[in-house]
Design a protein around this nucleic acid. Structure first.
Lengths: 126, 126
DNA sequence: ATGGGTGCAAATTGTTTGCATTTTA
DNA sequence: TAAAATGCAAACAATTTGCACCCAT
């Protein structure tokens, strides 16, 4: 298998149904194990290509750099650990958020982000 | 009144109970009317000072540059217009979001952002 | 040799900071 | 005239892009 293919496959393999949203740097670090020496530029280009192919989607969390996760998951939101910085997927959604908008405003979508400590960091913090 | 004071007051005056969250660039543009020639560096430094004084708070919306708004408002969330880019305050909160987090996770705060068209842009779009 | 894909470095954007200069007391 | 604050430009971080180079066909 050629290098290009190995790099793309290494990146594609990072996105699984159970995986958490990954930042470009996290993607590079992990892909580097299977495709040593992969550059950040290639990570960005590959991620962009996979996004356009509809395989992954961009996830924007407040105050955070963009993350990416597998596309096609059911509607969900995210949890951002304020200690380790990792993002996690959370299930469930209160719904009816469109009613919060002022009259005349058209709501197309919404994002909910919970901030706090993930189970690992909460345990360490006691 | 000296120049420093005029600049700081011009910025401070932008933050009102009814105002919407403003980005550094919006702050510079508006402050420039009362304090012509104000530099972006001064805007950033003043905003940081006002934040440390507890007069304003930073608002982070997904995929957006940081905004600032008057501190001390009651708990609320934001609406981001996908057309004009302006951010608006929205009232009300579904509550009980902490229950969405996985077991062992500690939720300290949450952010809800609605995306769509503000009343002005919705009207133009027909 | 031809085209696709890569790495490096330069360009961009948003934000911060060092420093000489200006302003104020 | 000494302290405080400003503006400009350089420094940074994240992301994108131009370009020379390399590999596979």
């Amino acid at each position: 298998m050629d290098r290009s293919t190995r790099q793309r496959d290494a990146i594609r393999a990072l996105f699984t149904p159970k995986g958490r949203p990954l930042s470009p740097k996290e993607i590079q670090e992990r892909a580097d194990r299977e495709a040593p020496g992969i550059s950040l530029a290639t990570v960005y280009r590959t991620v962009k290509a996979l996004e356009e192919l509809g395989e992954i989607v961009r996830v924007e969390l407040p105050g955070e750099t963009a993350r990416y996760e597998l596309a096609g998951k059911e509607h969900h939101h995210h949890f951002q650990c304020e200690s380790c910085g990792r993002a996690f997927e959370i299930h469930g959604c209160p719904g009816g958020l469109g009613k919060l908008a002022p009259p005349g405003f058209q709501v197309n979508r919404h994002e909910i982000t919970l901030f706090g400590l993930c189970s690992t960091c909460a345990r360490k913090a006691g």
